[in-house]
């Protein structure tokens, strides 16, 4: 086909783009993905037994705030990864905020008098925490990939990693409702490891599955 004819066809079939079309697509993916992650968490692991009393505890709110912040900032980056030419390094700096906050809190707790180091760091579920976060994050990762493919990611490995970061944060957030750990050092290490695993998986899959 001649290029001029192609231009003619494309402009003849031009339809106006609704405002917020991209936002709706991403919002849909989040809802579906996080719902999927919640189903996996409830089905495979179950809600923590002391759910209602835990919602009053500082540890629970620490976990929720940390993972939610990662998910929100991760999402901002995913949205940019789907737009060619968008600036990403400045929003990436925001990620330092929750990470620094949890590290600070962890140091505070570990340096408190009479701190029980093994309990603070290893808790009771350190061996399964990171893999559980990864597994719970998978539905969100899949939904985020699905949405990203409909946008225009131009750096596939990076876009995949950011999708993983967002899914890891969201998955960890959902996992909070199962996990009974509440110390900052545990969260800083094992939750972060789970999020990092999901990020690495996203980076690995990006090149292959985000092509368009």
């Amino acid at each position: 086909m001649r290029t001029d004819d192609l231009i003619g066809q494309l402009s003849a079939n031009l339809e106006p783009v609704k405002r917020g079309a991209m936002a709706r697509l991403l919002a849909g993916a989040i809802v579906i993905g996080v719902a999927g992650s919640a189903v996996v968490m409830l089905g495979m692991l179950g809600l923590r037994h002391d759910f209602s009393s835990a919602m009053m505890s500082f540890g629970m709110w620490t976990k929720l705030a940390y993972t939610l912040a990662i998910a929100v900032f991760g999402f901002l980056l995913v949205e940019r990864a789907g737009r060619p030419g968008a600036e990403m390094s400045k929003p990436a700096l925001l990620l330092a905020l929750p990470v620094l906050a949890i590290i600070l809190l962890a140091i505070l707790q570990m340096s408190a008098p009479g701190a029980d180091m093994p309990k603070l760091v290893m808790g009771r579920s350190s061996r399964v925490c990171a893999t559980n976060v990864l597994i719970v994050a998978l539905p969100t990762l899949a939904a985020t990939f699905w949405a990203l493919r409909r946008l225009a990611p131009t750096r596939l490995t990076l876009a995949g990693a950011l999708a993983g970061l967002f899914a890891g944060g969201a998955g960890a957030f959902v996992y909070c409702f199962h996990c009974t750990e509440s110390t900052a050092p545990f969260i800083a290490i094992w939750y972060s490891l789970g999020i990092a695993l999901t990020t690495a998986l996203g980076a690995l899959l990006g090149r292959r599955f985000l092509r368009w």
Binding site: L6, I7, L10, M22, R83, P84, G85, A86, L151, A152
Partner: peptide, 27 residues
Amino acid sequence: LIAIHTRRATYDPALPFTAWVYGIARY
């Protein structure tokens, strides 16, 4: 051109248009 057409919703009017097109051309 086809990519510009099918992905035109990803252009954010707050961002430079030329950078957007270059991103697609480079890809």
